[in-house]
Structures are given as structure tokens and as C-alpha cells.
């Protein structure tokens, strides 16, 4: 078995981890971690599967670079929303008190 295929298999497992985490965990931070794990899994499948004959393939590698930037963009937006939600929660509790 080539290293590419091995890492693609690991990617499949990571993707499943991420999906489970995204569905099962309720805390927004945990969901953000799960989404990132899921993304990493998909990236590994993309590159690993493309290189299962053992030669480097620049096309999926460039795609993953794009994907990593998209991931951090989504992560930052999610964190901003989660923080704002928490602030609203605290404000509301202060008003209720």
C-alpha cells in the first residue's frame, strides 16, 4: 500500500470524526474544531488519493492550499459569531438579573 493511500484512509477516518463531532458536540468552539478536523480529512483524501501511485501531484496540492485559506476564513467568521452570541447571552442575563 502506498503512503498516499494510507493517508487517504486516515483522511476518511478524520472526516468521519469531524462529522460526528459537528453533530454531537453542542459548544460552538467544539463545532469549529470538528469542522476543521473534517476539512483536514477531506484534504488528506484529495491529496492522498491523487498520489496513490507515489508521484507528487501539484493540482490537488494547489486545491488544498485554497481549501486551507477557505477554512481559516470560515473559522474566523464562526469565532466572531460565537463570541458575539456569548456577549448577547451575558447581556441578557444581566438584564434579567
Amino acid at each position: 500500500m502506498s503512503a498516499g493511500l494510507l493517508y487517504a484512509l486516515a483522511g476518511a477516518a478524520l472526516f468521519a470524526f469531524g462529522v460526528a463531532g459537528l453533530i454531537l458536540r453542542s459548544h460552538p468552539l467544539r463545532k469549529i474544531l470538528a469542522f476543521n478536523v473534517m476539512g483536514s480529512g477531506a484534504f488528506l483524501v484529495l491529496v492522498g488519493l491523487g498520489q496513490r501511485d507515489g508521484t507528487a501531484d501539484p493540482v490537488p496540492q494547489a486545491m488544498v492550499l485554497t481549501g486551507i485559506v477557505v477554512s481559516i476564513a470560515a473559522t474566523a467568521l464562526a469565532l466572531a459569531l460565537a463570541r458575539r452570541q456569548r456577549e448577547h447571552g451575558n447581556d441578557k442575563e444581566e438584564r434579567d438579573a
Binding site: A8, F15, G18, V19, L22, P28, K31, F35, M38, G39, G41, A42, F43, V45, L46, L49, G50, R52, P60, G67, A74, L77, A78, L81, A82, Q85, H88
Partner: peptide
């Protein structure tokens, strides 16, 4: 709160889509 929920749904959706793309490329 609605936007956060929307974001998580749309990210899960595009994650699944991306894995599909990876399999097609493979």
C-alpha cells in the same frame, strides 16, 4: 444565533461536497 447555526449547516454541507470532489478526482 441564526447566522451561527446557518454557518455550521452550510459548512457541513460544503465539507460533504468537498469530500465528494476528492473522491471524483481520485
Amino acid at each position: 444565533t441564526a447566522a451561527l447555526r446557518y454557518l455550521m449547516a452550510t459548512l457541513l454541507g460544503s465539507g460533504a461536497y468537498l469530500l465528494g470532489v476528492a473522491l471524483l478526482y481520485g
